[in-house]
Amino acid sequence: MTKVLIIEDDNMLGDTLSLYLQGEEYEVCRVDTIWGGLLQLETRPDIILLDLLLPDSKEKHPCALMREHTSVPIIVISSLTEVSERIRSLTDGADDFVCKPFSMQELKARIEAVLRRYTLLKSSPVVEHDTGISLDLARRTILLNHRRIETTFSEFEIMKLFVAHPGKVFSRYALIEAIRGIDAYIHDRTIDVHITNLRKKIEDNPKTPQYIQTVWGVGYKFTP
């Protein structure tokens, strides 16, 4: 049974989410603080639903804090609707962002989509490349000269696509389809954020990238 960890301090929403997901045959644990969420990581949840406005998360962004302790997929559920907040959450490690209020059916679909992609990655081997970059799909990490580079789920999906198709130019829309699906909302700026983060992690000089190059007016490509 799939385990969902809900970190939400709004009792009404938290209870509604718990009841709905339990009715959909998920195993649910709900806490109302970021500290409680960190403690529940010992139960090995399959996915985390994370509110941003938590009473004990004023010093550090909740996504950044959770990412320091787990690589489990994170879906943010928040009343903060500004594009800047979505970008910050994705930069700090979120794999999706759902604005309140939202449809329970849509949330379930997003959970299933993230878990489906994650399961496919876990069942795959290491993908080698002659650039010194390889992908450990089981552990969802990039290997750069045998050194592990942690990524978010979406960053890894993009890198997987790049490595599988070296030299091919991908538009932002193509990358959106690859990491979210054609029916999910995502802003073009989000792709740019993921690319920037990947460059910081794998490039010697992110400002003059060697591997992930911009094709002006079109998109991006991976150059071995």
Rank of each mutant, 00 (worst) to 15 (best):
K3G: 00
V4T: 12
V4I: 15
D9N: 15
G14M: 05
G14H: 04
D15F: 09
D15H: 13
L17I: 08
L17N: 02
L19I: 08
Y20K: 07
V28S: 02
L38F: 03
L38R: 08
T43S: 10
R44A: 07
D46R: 03
I48D: 03
L49Q: 06
L52N: 06
P55N: 04
E59L: 12
K60S: 09
A64K: 13
L65V: 12
L65N: 02
R67F: 09
E68H: 10
V72Y: 04
I74V: 14
S78F: 06
S78G: 10
S78Q: 05
S79M: 10
S79I: 08
T81H: 10
E85M: 11
G93Q: 03
F102N: 09
R110E: 11
A113Q: 13
V114W: 01
Y118P: 01
K122W: 04
V127K: 11
E128I: 08
D130Q: 11
S134N: 05
L135G: 03
D136G: 05
D136I: 04
L137Y: 07
T141F: 02
I142F: 07
L144V: 10
R147D: 10
F153Y: 12
S154P: 09
E155L: 09
I158Y: 05
I158A: 03
V163P: 02
A164C: 04
A164R: 13
H165D: 10
K168H: 10
V169C: 07
S171V: 04
R172P: 00
Y173E: 12
G181W: 08
D183W: 10
Y185Q: 13
H187E: 14
D188P: 15
R189V: 13
R189Q: 12
I191S: 00
I191P: 04
H194P: 08
I195G: 01
N197P: 06
L198I: 02
I202M: 00
P209T: 00
I212E: 03
T214R: 13
V215S: 02
V218I: 11
T223N: 11
P224L: 05
P224A: 02
